[in-house]
């Protein structure tokens, strides 16, 4: 099968010739398409190198970083019983979302493993079933927030490429909540739709009906009157300074 594929295409896919290729992750295969060493062409499969799959250290600095945050302060409590994942609302919908495993990876500083789950790591819906049932009161729901913090710190590129939507939405929330002290739901909705490139949907029948309804019953105008709490700027500044001066990964400028 693999041979046939090669015949069709002169340049083989990375690691294509490896028997049981499906057992090896892409990142673990090093293979230069074009490589000449001492005048000898060793392109493609001639220079294939498979990285060790064996973990060779526990990095506890990661654990300490999580433990120092408000949301992650109970990371040391987790004994991996799986009650959180068993309770989870999201896991049945996305099997790869596994709070138990994420907490364990953070405990052991297993970034290599954690990296594989960046795309699902933000899926927690914050329903707190895990925290309700966790026998050690680890508070896994908030541990998922800590997970977000560490991912942001250690995988900025992946956050940019895989979690852009999530980051953009967070930014909108931040601007509104911290910036204005109140949340304008209509603006939140429209700017989120814009950021996620779904402006068109706003013109669809369902959205249009809702907007029309709210304009008709007057709610749309109450949104305009939402306003801002008096003296909010002093709170905003005080919180901003606090966040800037934190020496944990919660630091807003980290």
């Amino acid at each position: 099968m693999a041979l046939k594929k090669q015949e069709q295409r002169p340049v083989a896919e990375k690691g294509e010739h490896i028997i049981a290729r499906h057992l090896i992750e892409d990142d673990s295969i090093k293979e230069e398409k074009n490589l000449v060493i001492d005048g000898v062409d060793v392109s493609g499969r001639w220079n294939t190198f498979i990285l060790s799959r064996v973990d060779s250290e526990f990095d506890r600095s990661f654990f300490r970083e999580v433990k120092d945050t408000v949301v992650g302060s109970r990371i040391n409590r987790c004994w991996q019983c799986g009650m959180c994942t068993a309770s989870c609302t999201v896991t049945p919908l996305y099997r790869r979302f596994n709070p138990r495993a994420f907490i364990y990876m953070m405990q052991l500083g297993n970034l290599k493993e954690l990296k594989k789950y960046i795309d699902v790591a933000w899926r927690c819906v914050g329903c707190y079933k895990c925290s309700q049932r966790c026998p050690k009161q680890v508070n896994p729901a908030e541990m998922m927030e800590a997970l977000g913090l560490v991912i942001k710190k250690y995988f900025p590129e992946e956050v940019q490429s895989k979690l852009k939507v999530d980051e953009d939405v967070k930014k909108i929330y931040d601007d509104m909540i911290l910036g204005h002290g109140r949340l304008d739901l209509a603006k939140l909705h429209t700017s989120a739709m814009q950021k996620t490139g779904r402006t068109k949907e706003l013109l669809g029948k369902i959205e249009r009906d809702a907007i029309f309804k709210m304009a008709k019953d007057g709610r749309a105008f109450s949104i305009l009157r939402l306003g801002k709490p008096h003296n909010w700027n002093s709170s905003k500044e005080a919180m901003g300074n606090y966040l800037k001066n934190l020496n944990t990964i919660e630091n807003s400028e980290a």
Partner: peptide, 12 residues
């Protein structure tokens, strides 16, 4: 073997 993550380890 870390049986929770299904990965081999060799830790000094």
């Amino acid at each position: 073997e870390d049986t929770l993550l299904r990965g081999p380890f060799e830790i000094p």
